Simulated assay, not measured.
Amino acid sequence: MTDTEWAAMRELLPVPAWMEGRGGQPEVYCHRQMRDAVRYLVAGGITWRSMPADFPAWDRVYAFWRRWRDEGLIGELHERLRDRVRQSEGRDPEPTAGVIDAQSLKGAASVPAASRGFDGGKKVNGRKRHIVVDTLGLLLVVMVTAASVTDREAAGALPARLRERHWRISRVWADGGYTGQLVDVARTLWRIALTVVKRTDDTRGFTVLPKGGWWSGRSRG
Rank of each mutant, 00 (worst) to 15 (best):
residue 176 G to A: 14
residue 198 K to L: 13
residue 179 T to Q: 08
residue 202 D to G: 07
residue 199 R to T: 06
residue 191 R to G: 14
residue 184 D to R: 14
residue 188 T to A: 15
residue 189 L to P: 06
residue 186 A to I: 05
residue 178 Y to S: 00
residue 202 D to W: 12
residue 208 V to P: 05
residue 184 D to S: 15
residue 178 Y to E: 06
residue 208 V to L: 15
residue 181 Q to F: 05
residue 205 G to E: 11
residue 185 V to H: 02
residue 203 T to M: 07
residue 193 A to Q: 10
residue 197 V to G: 07
residue 182 L to R: 00
residue 198 K to V: 14
residue 202 D to E: 13
residue 205 G to H: 08
residue 202 D to Y: 10
residue 195 T to I: 09
residue 189 L to M: 07
residue 178 Y to I: 03
residue 207 T to P: 06
residue 191 R to P: 04
residue 178 Y to R: 07
residue 195 T to W: 03
residue 195 T to D: 01
residue 186 A to Y: 09
residue 200 T to K: 06
residue 188 T to C: 08
residue 204 R to E: 13
residue 193 A to F: 07
residue 190 W to V: 01
residue 186 A to T: 05
residue 180 G to W: 04
residue 198 K to H: 11
residue 203 T to A: 14
residue 200 T to Y: 00
residue 182 L to Q: 06
residue 197 V to E: 04
residue 194 L to H: 08
residue 194 L to P: 03
residue 186 A to S: 06
residue 203 T to Y: 04
residue 204 R to K: 08
residue 184 D to G: 12
residue 202 D to K: 10
residue 184 D to A: 15
residue 185 V to T: 14
residue 195 T to G: 02
residue 204 R to F: 02
residue 188 T to Q: 14
residue 181 Q to I: 04
residue 201 D to H: 05
residue 192 I to W: 09
residue 205 G to D: 12
residue 180 G to K: 03
residue 178 Y to L: 03
residue 188 T to V: 08
residue 200 T to L: 05
residue 184 D to K: 14
residue 176 G to T: 06
residue 190 W to Y: 15
residue 203 T to L: 06
residue 200 T to D: 07
residue 199 R to L: 07
residue 184 D to Y: 11
residue 183 V to L: 00
residue 206 F to M: 11
residue 176 G to S: 13
residue 207 T to H: 15
residue 183 V to N: 03
residue 185 V to Q: 08
residue 184 D to H: 14
residue 183 V to F: 01
residue 183 V to Y: 02
residue 190 W to T: 09
residue 184 D to N: 13
residue 207 T to L: 13
residue 186 A to E: 03
residue 197 V to A: 02
residue 204 R to Q: 05
residue 203 T to K: 07
residue 189 L to G: 05
residue 197 V to Q: 01
residue 176 G to D: 06
residue 177 G to C: 11
residue 184 D to P: 04
residue 185 V to D: 12
residue 197 V to S: 04
residue 180 G to H: 01
residue 177 G to Q: 09
residue 188 T to H: 14
residue 177 G to F: 13
residue 187 R to I: 09
residue 188 T to L: 11
residue 194 L to I: 11
residue 194 L to F: 11
residue 198 K to P: 04
residue 193 A to K: 03
residue 178 Y to F: 11
residue 196 V to Q: 01
residue 194 L to S: 07
residue 192 I to M: 01
residue 202 D to N: 10
residue 189 L to F: 05
residue 204 R to A: 10
residue 186 A to N: 04
residue 196 V to I: 13
residue 190 W to N: 05
residue 195 T to F: 02
residue 187 R to Y: 15
residue 183 V to S: 08
residue 204 R to I: 11
residue 200 T to N: 06
residue 181 Q to N: 12
residue 181 Q to T: 11
residue 204 R to T: 14
residue 184 D to L: 12
residue 189 L to Y: 09
residue 195 T to H: 01
